[in-house]
Design a binder for these strands. Structure first.
Lengths: 138, 138
DNA sequence: ATAGACCCTGTAGTGGCTACAGGGTCAAGA
DNA sequence: TCTTGACCCTGTAGCCACTACAGGGTCTAT
């Protein structure tokens, strides 16, 4: 199949597929005499895997690691689990940060009177107040 | 005060302050005869404001909008509130995405047996399975 | 013959910094 | 007097994971 078809089947953009090839996530496929890329099902499965990993928030570097485990065939389930748990922790920590943002924001927004005069306690608090937002450390 | 002192007082990096100046978030300060930037308290308050906004997750573009409201002096509280609520919605939607990731991830990780053999249902599910992750519909 | 869908390469842009390289300034101490 | 070290300057390149062209070629249907 050609690149457009692969894109359709996996929900990727054509440019993204070429990008993955350029950075070594996908192998270079065979080319026809018109120089078009020709993909087979193994490519589709690999790209699907990459996309699923990305949807779960893994970085391309982590995806590369996972792929090299699969390609090498000599990984341990424990390694994969460690990578997964590490990433899960990162996701949880992002959630915590965003929750903190949400709570500060909704508190600030609730102080708005919503009128059309240029006085706003939201802005004033941020500009002058002893505003204290528990930011993420690191 | 000089740029290093301003950085210390606001918790910014020196490079970030220069970057904000370059992109028009902070005004160009006066320079001494040694060409060092010289800041006064108005700069500190403005930078503090920017930092607080960034901590709340506002983009620099949104910060620019807020600053131009303050600078113009002819905004309405309702405008600010709209911007705040819009951003709050964005934060909430990110939290929802991350929660979805978290749940899929923790489910996948929990299927790992953790042994040192190269078989792992986490990987297999992503690679072969009819894995279904409810991704954000943007 | 031509339109339109598809493919190619290569480069530049996005956001919000961060990290140099390569240089200047200034005060304290040996 | 010299040197060390902390600070400052400009300008550019790099980070991530794409995305968006520009400028061209190919293929199929009408």
């Amino acid at each position: 199949m050609r690149i457009g078809e692969l894109a359709r089947q996996t929900g990727c953009q054509v440019e993204t597929i070429r990008y993955y090839e350029r950075v070594g996530i996908l192998p270079e496929p065979k080319r026809g005499q018109n120089n078009y890329r020709h993909y087979v099902d193994a490519h589709r499965r690999r790209l699907q895997f990459v996309r699923r990993c990305r949807e779960l928030g893994f970085t391309l570097e982590e995806v590369r690691t996972l792929l090299s485990m699969i390609d090498g065939g000599t990984y341990s389930c424990a390694e994969v689990e460690a990578l997964g748990r590490g990433h899960l922790e990162a996701v949880r920590s992002k959630i915590a940060d965003l929750r903190q943002m949400e709570s500060t924001l909704s508190e600030l927004v609730s102080t708005c009177h919503g009128g059309d005069t240029p006085d706003c306690s939201f802005l004033e608090e941020l500009f002058e107040g002893q505003f204290e937002h528990k930011a993420a450390q690191q």
